[in-house]
């Protein structure tokens, strides 16, 4: 954990200070791109969107969302979420680029945008019958270009001084372990509703690890893109919009529980209905992590977010 904290500090410095984008005033409005996690789906064991329990847009004090934290320090703070249950980073009609387009179309543009997508990109893909369990997943190149399609739009449309926080995607392959630890009901509900069968239907741990390795690659690519936009080394951010991420490296690199992508959700952090989505405890941890890695959040301690 000591090593993880040190890595986190250096990354925070890299993405917050060593860049062309300058620190700015606090935002008065936020928006977000996301999926069912950002909609608080099932967080209180009711099988529908429960936005009041969302890590980003929630109003439940038990979750203490990013929105609630901004409201505490910015009078009149507002939000206009664009997250959609079922959305992917890449696929379909509600992907990141589509949601970014909707954010850019808002009558009053936000100065803070949070992004949390990717779980469905893995879970919606069919299981591979080849030796490579990740064979049917999007290539890292595809992932990167889909991410760029959204980031390009936000860099072009947001007001100067805005911040875009792109959170790493969760290691959905770890659900298998969390669900089996939670209840024998989990394997039944995964089968009944066809939930993330690419991992929940995969009994071979080494093959699930292949899926996890691809997720790590996606998150590495995400961090690389964030740095490229933040420093404008790709020429796509001439107006100096600030881009930040929570990703500090993979579990294999010793960064466990330093980001969404390395947080090992436990059985007590997923709901009992689908054994897949974070419950209120999980949502609260996500909110805490997002705030701790948000430049507006100040000096939050990432390890303290996870209990």
């Amino acid at each position: 954990m000591k090593r993880a904290s040190a890595v986190g500090l250096s990354t925070a410095i890299l993405f917050t200070l060593g860049v062309t984008a300058s620190a700015s005033a606090l935002p008065t409005k936020q928006s977000n791109a996301g999926d069912s996690i950002s909609q608080g789906f099932d967080a209180n064991d009711l099988p529908s969107d429960q936005r009041q329990e969302s890590w980003i847009q929630g109003t439940d004090s038990a979750v203490h969302s990013v929105y609630s934290r901004y409201v505490e320090i910015v009078p009149g703070f507002t939000q206009e979420p664009e997250s959609v249950t079922g959305a992917e980073m890449i696929g379909g009609s509600n992907n990141f680029a589509a949601q970014a387009s909707r954010i850019c179309g808002q009558a009053t543009l936000p100065q803070h945008v949070s992004v949390l997508l990717g779980g469905n990109d893995v879970c919606n893909r069919p299981k591979s019958s080849s030796g490579d369990a990740a064979a049917n997943l999007y290539s890292v190149e595809t992932w990167t270009n889909g991410l760029r399609a959204g980031l390009d739009q936000l860099a072009a449309c947001l007001p100067q001084g805005s911040t875009v926080q792109i959170l790493s995607m969760p290691r959905v392959d770890n659900l298998y372990t969390a669900g089996h630890a939670k209840s024998f009901w989990c394997s039944a509900t995964w089968s009944l509703f066809g939930i993330c069968r690419v991992v929940t239907g995969e009994g071979n741990a080494s093959r699930r690890a292949q899926i996890g390795a691809r997720v790590d690659q996606y998150n590495d690519a995400l961090a690389g893109e964030v740095q490229s936009y933040n420093t404008n080394s790709n020429g796509q951010n001439a107006r100096g919009i600030r881009f930040v991420t929570d990703w500090q490296g993979s579990i294999a690199e010793g960064a466990t529980n330093t980001s969404v992508g390395t947080h090992l959700f436990s059985k007590d952090e997923i709901n009992i209905v689908d054994c897949f989505h974070p419950n209120k405890s999980g949502q609260r941890e996500l909110a805490c992590l997002a705030w701790a890695t948000n430049p507006d959040g100040g000096s939050g301690s990432i390890p303290a977010c996870f209990h």
């Binding site: 890449i90 696929g91 680029a97 080849s130 490579d132 064979a135 049917n136 997943l137 999007y138 290539s139 190149e141 595809t142 992932w143 990167t144 270009n145 889909g146 399609a149």
Partner: peptide, 15 residues
């Protein structure tokens, strides 16, 4: 063209 995934079941993703 966002990208291609090689292999026995190669596919491309377009937007």
């Amino acid at each position: 063209l966002y990208g291609v995934q090689s292999g026995d079941d190669a596919f491309a993703t377009i937007a």
